[in-house]
């Protein structure tokens, strides 16, 4: 999980012009999330973690913070390995 958090944090920092994002910071409330970033985030977690984001995952809460995205990744990975 901590490796996932680091990777997601690095991706968000890159995407948000070097801004440091706290693990529980709400990126949408902070004004970082936009429609272009939303699909980039999907592309990132799919390519980096080898998971498939699908319709069931389309809940804004799954993408709200670094920790929430890491939880989504962990859930999807556990389904793949189960």
């Amino acid at each position: 999980m901590s490796e996932s958090i680091s990777a997601i944090a690095a991706f968000m920092t890159r995407s948000f012009d070097g801004a440091e994002i706290a693990p529980d910071q709400d990126i949408f409330e902070a004004g970082y999330g936009n429609s272009m970033f939303s699909m980039q985030l999907v592309a990132f977690v799919e390519s980096h973690f080898g998971i498939e984001v699908d319709a069931d995952d389309l809940d804004i809460d799954n993408f709200r913070s670094i920790n929430r995205v890491a939880s989504l990744v962990a859930r999807k990975q556990s389904l793949v390995s189960a």
Binding site: S35, S38, M39, L58, I60
Partner: peptide, 15 residues
């Protein structure tokens, strides 16, 4: 309904 409410432009259309 395809996807989830509110995700039509950002995800479905973009795909």
């Amino acid at each position: 309904l395809l996807g989830r409410p509110g995700f039509g432009a950002s995800h479905v259309a973009v795909t």
